[in-house]
């Protein structure tokens, strides 16, 4: 096996070990825990009152706009990492590479004042 595959084999083994840990713990749990579920225990918790309507109720999720912003910025951070690793060893070209990234960051950051003007970040 090559170095690359051995490294990720450890990762895969850890995932398997994690799943095994959870499975063994619950198997053990099943052996020694009581199991006497009935009516009242199984109702949805709503501070002791009978639950009203459905748990999957419709709500206004104000946060969905944040999710859009997140996608914009998260893609940007993906670009930053390879750039960050190689900026230091770019020699005479590094000034240019820095400038290009500054232009990119400027345009991405324009998102924030735009969202601010739109009032996305304020709702109280």
């Amino acid at each position: 096996m090559g170095q690359y595959y051995t490294a990720y084999a450890t990762v895969a083994a850890l995932v398997a070990a994690g799943i095994a840990l959870v499975a063994v713990a619950f198997a053990l749990n099943r052996l020694i825990r009581p199991d006497r579920a009935y009516g009242g225990k199984l109702t949805t918790y709503e501070c002791g009152l009978d639950p009203v309507g459905q748990g999957w109720s419709q709500t206004h999720i104000r946060y969905y706009l944040f999710a859009f912003m997140f996608v914009v910025f998260d893609v940007e951070t993906l670009f930053i990492f390879p750039w960050a690793v190689h900026l230091g060893d770019a020699g005479p070209a590094s000034g240019f590479i820095l400038g290009v990234m500054l232009v990119f960051l400027f345009f991405v950051t324009l998102t924030l004042p735009y969202e601010w003007r739109k009032g996305v970040l304020k709702w109280v």
Partner: peptide, 10 residues
């Protein structure tokens, strides 16, 4: 580990 595992009906 000894506690009952309650999964709500809903």
């Amino acid at each position: 580990l000894q506690k009952e595992d309650i999964i709500p009906a809903a």
